[in-house]
Design a binder for these strands. Structure first.
Length: 493
RNA sequence: CCAUGGAUGACAGAGCGGUCUAAUGUCAUUGAUUGCAAAUCAAUUGUUCGUCGGUUCGAAUCCGACUCCAUGGUCCA
């Protein structure tokens, strides 16, 4: 039984898909007007783990994550895409393409599975126009000077719960209406645009029954989630900064156009902080993903591998803010390495005991707890805690502190399968390789075997100078030797 | 100013009425192992859970006030 924290009801509830075994999930994707920043990465890593967990439970999941390439306006009213294009003297689509490609690269290096469908807002203008028509027909939107606005007061009069997601009060909204301070073409300050008439300088524009213009930002998610997941679907997710107005408006648009509010469960991920504060380019409290990986930033003493960063993110619950710092990253990196080393050792370890050996129970208990924690609102930190118990056990046996005969062959084989599924499939963690290490690994292994043999000989001859030289020079190449009871092993860092 | 979350040990972060003298990772100390290291295992120290007050037989967990932080809104610019 899977439980999740539904931000619409504000409660942790049991998840029941509309159709057992099938899950439809929509997650708000990036606006591709600038490079993806590390905060975005956390959001998408969180939803990747959620997606993976749903798959792990045997569901067939349709995961839709959009690309916003139109309509998301800046504070000054300029379209983000247009501004990006103007500043760089490019076509808006060039800007979108550049950052879409960059975004995909980023998702790949963090080992995020690609979504099932990745629709673009500009590819769904027709669907959005249709939705505007439906909302007008329902009497919940009005045209004004070529633009179309969602009529929030009318929507409220129909008794729909505008504000239920974000906790905004209907009364507050009505109180504002008495001020009669409607600006521009809007009748009411809380009304929002679903179709905007394009100004003369606006580059991105489409024909519509009302004007040559472009869709409001909130509309795309309503139109595309409905198109691919239906009028009612299971899960909608996004960063919690999107709760209001974006998600609130999305629900209203869905409800107004077809009588269904879209998703039945809402999930919101929390923000990533840097050194206890929000990231902001203007005051320097900021780091790009590239800098984080390369280490070229004052905020970080060295570069961190994407997998270590992913692990760092998973050490906290997706619903909590996470404070990133050099110390925190370094701690996560160490833990990640220890866990992955144990996972690797598990692949060659065998239990030699008979059925019902004493450690079987222990290892399966920890593994089952890890699974249970994932089903409890995707509690990755607790799951990882349980996984570390498994790691200690594996290391104990591999290093001879505990006996392999305390583990049954079948019991351990089963445990290994569970462990690998949790680590690789659910958490999406992989051993950090240099990327192209696979082709050359056979040669490297052979070479290292030779070097280790030579060093073993000098150790046998008590030629410590030689053996230490080998060890130190390898260390300088980021190859670490580990002397164990049963000989020496190595790992590439 | 409003709404909604949050404040936990050296750092990060779980826990959210009794099993908490608080999981887990990192750090520190010690022991085992080692030629010495590293890695590994084991043990131990580090705070009593923002502040003050309340509810309760019992609070990190509930309530109130305050301080600070985050997200969104709003006002002013």
């Amino acid at each position: 039984m899977l439980k999740l924290q539904d931000t619409l009801s504000g409660k942790k509830v049991e998840f029941e898909p509309l159709k057992p075994g099938f899950v439809g999930m929509y997650v708000c994707g990036p606006t591709v007007y600038s490079p993806a920043h590390i905060g975005n990465c956390r959001t998408f890593v969180s939803f990747d783990v959620i997606y993976r967990t749903l798959l792990y439970l045997g569901n067939k999941v349709r995961y839709v994550r959009n690309i916003t390439d139109v309509g998301h306006l800046l504070d000054d009213g300029e379209d983000r895409m247009s501004k990006g294009a103007r500043l760089q003297q490019l076509e808006p689509m060039e800007v979108a393409q550049e950052h879409t490609v960059g975004f995909h690269d980023m998702m790949r290096i963090f080992n995020n599975l690609p979504p099932s469908i990745e629709p673009r807002a500009t590819g769904h203008i027709i669907e959005q126009i249709e939705m505007v028509e439906q909302i007008i027909e329902a009497g919940l939107a009005y045209e004004s000077n070529g633009s179309v606005y969602f009529d929030v007061p009318a929507y409220l009069e129909k008794g729909e719960g505008y504000g239920s997601l974000s906790g905004r009060k209907v009364d507050d909204l009505m109180a504002e209406s008495r001020d009669l301070k409607a600006q521009g073409d809007k009748r009411h300050p809380s009304d929002f645009a679903i179709w905007m008439k394009a100004g003369p300088d606006h580059i991105m524009r489409w024909n519509s029954p009302w004007s040559v213009g472009f869709p409001g930002w909130h509309l795309e998610c309503s139109a595309m989630s409905r198109k691919y997941l239906g009028e009612e679907f299971d899960i909608h997710g996004g960063g919690n900064d999107l709760k209001f107005p974006h998600h609130e408006n999305e629900i209203a648009q869905n409800q107004a156009s077809c009588g269904h509010g879209g998703a039945r469960y809402w999930l919101h991920t929390n923000m990533l902080l840097l050194n206890g504060k929000k990231m902001s380019k203007s005051d320097g409290n900021h780091i790009t993903t590239e800098q984080l990986i390369s280490g070229e930033s004052e905020h970080v003493s060295k570069g961190y591998s994407p997998m270590a960063i992913r692990f760092f993110m998973l050490m906290a619950h997706y619903g909590s803010p996470l404070d990133m710092s050099d110390d925190a990253l370094a701690a996560a990196e160490k833990g990640y390495q220890r866990l992955m080393e144990a996972v690797k050792r598990s692949e060659t370890l065998e239990g030699t005991g008979s059925e019902g050996a004493p450690l079987d129970l222990e290892i399966h208990k920890a593994l089952d707890e890890a699974r249970a924690h994932m089903l409890d609102d995707f509690n990755t930190p607790r799951a990882i805690a349980s996984l570390f118990e498994v790691a200690s056990l594996i290391n104990s046996i591999a290093d001879g502190h505990r006996k392999a005969s305390d583990l049954s062959a079948a019991g351990f084989a089963e445990a290994r399968t569970k462990l690998l599924a949790l680590v690789h499939d659910v958490l999406g963690l992989q051993a950090s390789t240099g990327g192209d290490a696979d082709d050359s690994s056979e040669r490297i292994n052979g070479l290292m075997e030779l070097v280790i043999d030579l060093r073993a000989q000098s150790r046998a001859d008590r030629n410590w100078a030689m053996s230490d030289q080998i060890r130190d020079q390898l260390a300088a190449l980021d190859i670490e030797l580990k002397d164990g009871k049963e000989g020496t092993t190595f790992s590439l860092k």
